[in-house]
Structure formats: structure tokens, C-alpha cells
Design a binder for these strands. Structure first.
Lengths: 178, 178
DNA sequence: CGGCCTCCTCTACAGATGTAGAGGACTCTA
DNA sequence: TAGAGTCCTCTACATCTGTAGAGGAGGCCG
């Protein structure tokens, strides 16, 4: 499917050069398609952005790993997976920032772990599941951001390694504690 | 100082339109200066970016509020302050993302709370202050990001209100616990 | 086989953008 | 008051960007 070639190339570009690099012609080049292709599929830039964000959403079907026997481990694994998929996650951050001044993106972006987090908090016996769930989500987001683009991107362990998993698990355990 | 007029306008633009809106001429307009002014002070776009990021760093001298009697409250207040300074914080996120493919920005961006956080963790008697400090920083970052651009930006309490402070404080308390 | 439709490529063009430099206004010093 | 230096404004221009439409290749239906 040509459309997917295009949106995938768009994701790579946004991850590597930021939103500013996202132009019709740059996507053509990145996808190895003749000039004009991207413009044919996504006539306006706005359409192009929505296109790649939708593609992101599709690719992110991979949801939180919920392992009943090793809850923290499963979640750590999920986060580590997002760190390994660096491009995708970077593109997602760029899109979230974009959604700030382009609200229709928000509805595509809703990363559903929110309700999962609330349910989790309830199951663990937190007194106020909504709050706890929100805090938990915030913490996960933070861990991810910190390790991907924040201070932890230079000092933290390399994603995909045992050490990375251990580190993440430890952090998650602390927050799961009721 | 004309240079500050320019960098301040640049910060507003980046916050409101993203990095893509940051052009010499757009900054001229936003600052109410004649066309060409920005270009005279920052000949290249790279220089303009570095200029506004340095300005950000200057404006952010306001460091973490450390209140010995109400540690969590002080930190909550700090975070809430960042949420209220929406533009500045949004511009900071855009800059952090930019630093991903423009590494020389990182040295300007280092938000110093990292060592403070480590020291804090040590003072609170965490077994491994470096890890605890990093996790704590991650959590703060996450809370901020979640409330500013993530899910909490639509559902959370309005920054600057009592409720916002209470909510943040509760979250911070949980993570401060050794 | 002829016509139609879809998918794709190519070209056009107005406007925006990055960057450079000429020259004017203003200020300070001697 | 003359000259030098600084700060600012204006204009120029090659290049890039968003967007549109013309037209070709190939498949499908009658």
C-alpha cells in the first residue's frame, strides 16, 4: 500500500528532523517515491500530519503488557519497548506537542492506557483509583520522556538491555505500591 | 534590549505555533519590529534557536521551591508554577525535542534539578540516591508533561488553583516516600 | 475491441523563507 | 563640529514549500 509507505516515511522524518522537516517533497525522497506522490495522497500538509498520526495510532496497537504474576515487570517491558521503538515514540511526542495548537489531533492520539491505569489502581486497592490512575499514567509518561529525551537519555542504561529493564521495573514497583 | 524582545517573541511563537512557525519574519511581526530585525540579530535560523533557548534558560532561573517544613507542598508549587507559565514550558518541550537532532542545544537546556533531586533523595534516606533521584526527576517531568500536554491537560484541575496544588502535592508525597 | 476509471507522475506557480549586504540614523569621542 | 563606530531598516535573491491540475499507463467492464 503506497499510503503506508508514505506515512511510514513521514514518521521517520518527523522523528529525525522534527515537524519542520515534514514537507511533501522530503517525504517523497525518504520514501523513495517520485516527486509529487505525497502531494497526490495528501493534498494539504494538515492531511499529511493527520495521516501519519493515524498511522502511529495503528502501529501502537501494542498495548501495555499485563502480566498478573509480574505486574511491574510487564509494564517495565512495555516502556522499554517504547524506548526501543525510538522513532515511533519521538514522532508521537512531536505529534502531542502539535496537538496543542491543532486540537483535532488529540482524538486520534488518545493513548488508551489511561483507563487501564485506573482499573489497575483500583485492583491494587488504592483509595482513590481515578487519582492514583492519573498519577500512575503521569509517572509512566515521565519515565518514558525522561529516558527518551530528558536527562536520562544520556545517563540512563541502554534500552533493550537487562539493566534497562531492571531499572524501569524498580521505578514501576515503587509507584505501584498502594 | 532589542535582543530580548526578539527572543521573547520567539518563545511565544514556538509555544503557540511550534518550531515550524519560527521564522525570522514571523518573529519580527510578533515582536512588533520592522522586517529584517530578527535576521540582523540572528543571521541564521540555528542562531535564532540557540538564542531563544538561552533566553529560556535565563528565565528559568526560578528553581525548585525547597520548603523544609512542607517539602511536597513546595515542589507542588514549583510544578504548578511551570504549568501556569504555559508558554515557557511548551517552548521548553519543543526545544528538548529539537535537541534530539541538534545536540548542542542540550548543554544549554540542562535543567539542573537533577542534582537537587539526588541530594533530596539522599537526605530522605533512600537506599540508592542516584536511582531514586533519577526516578524522582522522571516523575516530576512526567507529572508536568502529563498535565501540560498529555491526558491531564483536558481532565486535570486548572493550574494555579488550590485544587491543582492539592492534586500535585498528593502525587509528590507518594514519590517522596522512601 | 473501445471506452472508462483508477492510480500515478510530472510540471506549474504563487508565496514564504533563509541569508546577505547596502546604506541611513544616531551616538560618542576628540 | 567632524569623524568613527554602532545599531537599525530596507531591499534583493536564490531556494524551498504548499497546492493544483494536466495527462499518461494500465486494468476492467461492456
Amino acid at each position: 500500500m503506497r499510503k503506508d509507505l508514505i506515512t511510514d516515511a513521514a514518521i521517520r522524518i518527523v522523528a529525525e528532523q522534527g515537524m519542520r522537516g515534514l514537507t511533501h517533497r522530503a517525504v517523497d525522497r525518504e520514501a523513495g517515491l517520485p516527486e509529487g506522490s505525497t502531494s497526490a495522497y495528501f493534498r494539504t500538509r494538515k492531511a499529511l500530519i493527520e495521516g501519519f498520526v493515524e498511522r502511529l495510532a495503528v502501529q501502537e496497537q501494542q498495548e501495555i503488557v499485563l502480566d498478573q504474576d509480574d505486574l511491574a515487570g510487564g509494564i517495565a517491558k512495555t516502556i522499554d519497548g517504547w524506548l526501543v521503538e525510538r522513532n515511533r515514540t519521538l514522532a508521537r511526542y512531536a505529534a502531542m506537542l502539535e496537538a496543542t495548537h491543532h486540537p483535532e489531533l488529540k482524538s486520534i492520539l488518545v493513548h488508551s492506557p489511561r483507563e487501564q491505569a485506573t482499573a489497575l489502581a483500583r485492583a491494587l486497592g488504592h483509595e482513590s483509583p481515578e487519582h492514583a490512575g492519573a498519577h500512575f499514567t503521569a509517572f509512566i509518561e515521565g519515565l518514558l520522556f525522561y529516558r527518551l529525551v530528558g536527562g536520562g537519555s544520556t545517563t540512563g542504561p541502554r534500552p533493550g538491555t537487562e539493566e534497562s529493564l531492571r531499572d524501569l521495573k524498580k521505578a514501576v514497583e515503587k509507584v505501584l505500591r498502594p
